[in-house]
Each structure stands twice: as C-alpha cells, then as structure tokens.
Design a protein around this nucleic acid. Sequence first.
DNA 1: CGGCCCTTTGACGGACGTCAAATAGCGTGG
DNA 2: CCACGCTATTTGACGTCCGTCAAAGGGCCG
Lengths: 226, 226
Amino acid sequence: MPERPKSRETGREIGREFGLPTLLPLSEHTVPARRVIFRQRDVHESVPFICSGWAATAVTLSDGSRQILSFLLPGDMVSASLLFGSTAHCSVEAVTDVHYCCFDRDDLKASLLSGPDLIEKLSRIWLERKLRAVELAVDLGRRTADERIARLILGLRDRLAARGMTQGQTMDFPLRQHHVGDATGLTAVHVSKVLSEFRRRGLIEINDRSLTILNPGEFQRVATMR
Amino acid sequence: MPERPKSRETGREIGREFGLPTLLPLSEHTVPARRVIFRQRDVHESVPFICSGWAATAVTLSDGSRQILSFLLPGDMVSASLLFGSTAHCSVEAVTDVHYCCFDRDDLKASLLSGPDLIEKLSRIWLERKLRAVELAVDLGRRTADERIARLILGLRDRLAARGMTQGQTMDFPLRQHHVGDATGLTAVHVSKVLSEFRRRGLIEINDRSLTILNPGEFQRVATMR
DNA sequence: CGGCCCTTTGACGGACGTCAAATAGCGTGG
DNA sequence: CCACGCTATTTGACGTCCGTCAAAGGGCCG
C-alpha cells in the first residue's frame, strides 16, 4: 500500500477556496493513485472537494487519446459544474493517493447563495477557472512544446505556492510524463525529450517526484517567449 | 458602406439567452466589420450583448499570433465574466458589421439574482460555456486539422440552427480563412488547403460568404473520427 | 527472480508551418 | 471610367516540429 494521507484537513482546506462556515461532509473517500474517481457520464448529487493528493480532470476520445483539462490540488472543488448540474462533462482520476469529501449540492448551494459575500466568492472561483480555461486554449493552440511544458510547471508552482506547499524553488511533482503529455497535447515520448533538454540546459531538476527550478529567470523566459 | 443591421431586435435577442424582463440598455453601438470592440485590458461597468452580426473573442500574444476562443452570434452575452468582474480577459472583434447593446452590470446582476428561476438560467449559460471551453481544449490538443475545421463549422451550424438562422444545410459563413485558422490553432494557408480538400471531396461548398454542407453524413464522420 | 511501468534515446515519417508567387475581388480616388 | 492598393484565396516547394515505432535500461513489488 502506498502512503496514506497524513491528515484530514477537510475543514481547513475547504476553507481555502470558500471560507465556508463549517458544513458537514456527506461522505469521505480515499482512493489510490491512478484510480478513476468519476467517469464522464456519471451523475452526482454531491460536490466533491480534494482534501489531500493530486487529481486530474480529463476527456477521453474513442481512440483512447486523452486531454487533461486541469490538475486538482488540495482544497479544490472537483468541478464547479456540479454545483448547478449533475454531470461534470469530464472524468476525474487520482494522480497520487487522494482523499476527498463530498458535500450535498443543495446544502452547499444554499449556503453559497445565502450571503452576497459568498456569491462573490463563487464568482471569483468561476473567474479563475475561466481564466485557466482561456490560458489552456491559448497554450494548446498557439504555443510550442517547450512553452507548454514550462507553463504547466510554472502554473502548478504558483498554485502550490498559494497553498504554502513549495519549499523555495522546489515542489512536489507527482506527475508521470504521460500526465504532462495529456495535459499539453503532446506525447509522453516528446515530453521526455523536452524535459531532458530542460535538464541539459540547467533549467530544472527532477528527482524522486520532486521538481526544482534551478534557473527561474531563464525558465520563465522559456515559458513566455511569445 | 456594407449592409446595415436589418433590425434592432434587442429585446427579443436578449430574450433568447436570458428570458429577461424588459431591461433598458444603457447604450447601443454599431461597429463595422474587422473593428476591435474591446481590448484585453479594457475595464467595463456594463455587459454587452450582440444584437446582430458576428464577433470573435480572442487573445493575442506578443508575437502577433492570436487564438480565437469563441464566435459570438446574435443574442450572445459578450462575456459572462463581465457579470462579476470588470475585465473580460480577452479582446472582442467584429467579424461582420455588429450591432450591440450594453446593460448596466448591477442592474443585470440584480435582476438575474432576484429569482431562483434566473439563477438557473445563468448557471445554464455558465455550463454551456464551460462545455464549449472543454470542447475547444480537446479539439486543439487532440484533433487533426480536418477534424478541428469540420467541428468548428458544425458547431456554428448548430448554434445558428438553434436561432433559426439556417436554411436547410446552408448557412451564413462570414468568416475569413484567417478567422478559421485563429480559432483552430492553424494557419490561414493550411485552412485553405483543408477547405479545398473538403470541396474536392464534395463535402461542402462555399460561395459568397455562405456555406452549404453537401454531404452531411460524411462531413459529420470527418468531424467525429475519434 | 520476473513482470510491469516509467523513462530515455534514436531513426524515421507525417502533419502542418513558412515562404513565395499568381490571381481575384473590392473599394477608393483620380 | 480606369488605375491602384489592399485583402483574401490558392497552390507548390520546402522545412520543422512533433508523432510513431522500437529497443534498452531502471525501479518497484510481488
């Protein structure tokens, strides 16, 4: 068995994204790495939040190719769609071992819509997700492999840093190269070549599921070449 | 001067997306084709709706390359982001001559949040936009040029059909090949080659800013190969 | 020890971009 | 009216980026 989640920080983590008053989870779950949590067509009456671990939302095409739409980090609501509809339009897979909690949709919606304060919070979440969706489309449509991969790494770094989950230029990096490829519209083989090149240029270092940015300035430049 | 918008169907068109009670527009505007309506950094206190014509939302990178995120058709809210924030994160350009109306954000938000009915409508709009964003990412990340272009055309066909703006398999198609390229992450030159191939295969016909799907079954198959 | 997954590396191929030239259309101004 | 300038489209030759295929090695766990 792989390592277990260290603590159950449900209240605090949910607090990160919502600042919700204490709301009791309907259920809690722990799933091992690589397990599918939900399928694209699943119907839900509750809204899950990631408490620990990393997950990915993805769409799979009939030929087996896959597009990862986002990585979910501790504290993230699995899909804002689920607040209003009962289907998320995409599947969710555990990248590491994942612990998550489900809240009743109607309860959650009710407490969100109760105060103008919380509506603002909800809209901020929507705006941030929309911004990420725009960035993803621009990256996939208009950027090279180098840029896409560097931007993926920097985006994750920023989100982890906002949670206090980085140590200087070092961060957890549990993604397989296959995940990176599916998130950037590339193949795992090509991801390997690009990462090797990044290492050769002294930009980053990856050891034991941990990534360090050795040359932040230059790495940022690679991510922002256009 | 190119043709002018035939009528000012503000009320009815806004009705299409929102079913709003009559709400007076703050202002109305007419802009000629190819004109930029808003820039990425513009700050707005009002929410614009397209009354007639086609527009495009896009992000432009510093090297001049551009990613079109969506085409806006009559009745569309220009950006749902503007309901909650004062910046749309993308620019908006007129594809054809465009007539649009702006509503006061606070008025619009207030009437949307007044009834649970309208909140449901708003969330349906968010869900549809999110679904389109997901489709865009999958298309850009995982589909070939043929598929992307066929899917763009079919997506527009469906949206026009929902407005009663198609005649059988024929629809207005005011897009330049440059627009198609910017929307699909391709170059205008490659778009030309793909469209020529579509014509050679008897799939579609384009004349005078009008597009006809000659072989719907086969064209659908091209769009759904995986 | 033996699978399995992950990663790396190289050779090769294909899809799409770049560059260039030719043509057509369209609106403007003389 | 024609001349012109600009934009859009088409087509071909060629180049590049990234995918595909294959082989080999390492780490992990039964």
